[in-house]
C-alpha cells in the first residue's frame, strides 16, 4: 500500500481509494475498524478528501439514515468534517440527516473529545452556508459550542464559520455563553475572518458583551485573544508547520485583526 506521507501517491490512487471506501464502511460495521481508520487518516493527510466524499455522497446519506447501526453513524459523524459540504449535489438532504443523526449518537467517554471536535467543526461548516443553516436546530448550538473542543489547525468549520451571516446567527440566539464559546472557537492564529465577520464581531462585542454581567465572558475572550496573539508572535516558522502558504503579510494582518478585537474588548471592559 501507499505511505500516508506520500501525497502524490495518494493523489494518484484517489479513485481506487474512493472505490474502496464503501467496503471499509462495511468492515467497520462488522467491528473491523482498521481499513476505515486507515482511509480516514489518508483523507485527513491528503487533499483528496473532496474527491472521495463527493463520490460517496449517496452512501453517506444512506449511512446517516434512521436504522443504520450506531457505529456506522458514529463513523460518519467522525468523518463529516472532511465532507465537501459546498460541493455535495444533495447537501440539504445530507445536512438534514446529519443534524438528525448527531443527537442520537451513543459513544464511550474516550471518544467524547473527538466527537465534540467533529460535530463543532461540521456544525460551523454547515452553518456557514445559507441553504443549509436552517437545518440546524436552535438547541444544537449551545449544547455543542459550549463544549469548546480544541479544533485542529486545519479546520474547514472554523475557516468558513467566521462569516458575517454566521456571527449574526449566533447573536440571534441571545445567549452570551454560546456567543462566547463561538468566538473562542473561531478565533485562531490559523485562520482569517470571512466576509465581514470581523466587523460583525466588533459590533457584537460592543452590543452583546457589555455590562458587568458579561465580565467573565469578556475575561475568557481576552484570554483567548492573548493566546492567539502570543501564537502569532511565534512567527512564520511556527505557523508554517500546518500552513505552508502563509506569509508575513498574512501574519501581520491577523495581528492587526486580533489586536483590534482585543482593544474593542478592553474598551467595553473599561466602560
Amino acid at each position: 500500500m501507499v505511505e500516508v506521507s506520500d501525497l502524490d501517491s495518494i493523489r494518484s490512487k484517489r479513485k481506487a481509494i474512493t472505490a474502496l471506501f464503501p467496503y471499509a464502511v462495511w468492515r467497520e460495521r462488522d467491528g473491523k475498524h482498521e481499513m476505515f481508520d486507515a482511509l480516514l487518516r489518508i483523507t485527513k493527510a491528503s487533499d483528496i478528501r473532496d474527491y472521495i466524499w463527493y463520490h460517496v455522497e449517496p452512501l453517506v446519506s444512506a449511512l446517516l439514515r434512521e436504522g443504520t447501526s450506531g457505529s456506522l453513524k458514529l463513523a460518519m459523524v467522525l468523518a463529516s468534517p472532511h465532507f465537501p459540504w459546498r460541493q455535495f449535489k444533495n447537501g440539504e438532504n445530507l445536512a438534514r440527516l446529519w443534524t438528525a443523526a448527531v443527537p442520537t449518537l451513543s459513544y464511550t467517554k474516550k471518544y467524547t473529545d473527538e466527537i465534540n471536535r467533529s460535530v463543532v467543526d461540521t456544525l460551523l461548516h454547515i452553518a456557514s452556508q445559507d441553504t443549509l443553516r436552517g437545518y440546524i436546530s436552535v438547541d444544537m448550538w449551545p449544547s455543542w459550542l459550549n463544549a469548546r473542543p480544541s479544533l485542529p489547525p486545519v479546520c474547514a468549520g472554523r475557516y468558513w464559520g467566521s462569516s458575517r451571516d454566521l456571527v449574526q446567527t449566533i447573536r440571534g440566539l441571545k445567549n452570551a455563553d454560546t456567543l462566547t464559546s463561538y468566538l473562542i472557537l473561531v478565533w485562531s492564529e490559523w485562520d482569517d475572518f470571512r466576509d465581514g465577520g470581523l466587523e460583525e464581531m466588533r459590533t457584537s462585542i460592543q452590543e452583546d458583551l457589555r455590562g458587568t454581567m458579561m465580565g467573565p465572558n469578556r475575561k475568557e475572550l481576552l484570554q483567548r485573544l492573548d493566546h492567539v496573539l502570543g501564537q502569532l508572535d511565534l512567527g512564520l516558522g511556527h505557523l508554517r508547520q500546518h500552513d505552508r502558504d502563509i506569509d508575513e503579510d498574512a501574519v501581520q494582518l491577523r495581528k492587526r485583526q486580533y489586536g483590534g478585537l482585543k482593544k474593542e474588548l478592553q474598551k467595553v471592559e473599561d466602560k
Binding site: K15, T18, A19, L20, P22, Y23, H55, V56, A62
Partner: peptide, 12 residues
Amino acid sequence: CWILRFALHSLS
C-alpha cells in the same frame, strides 16, 4: 475510471 466507479457503486 469507469471500472473503479462500478466497483464503488457495487460496494455501496
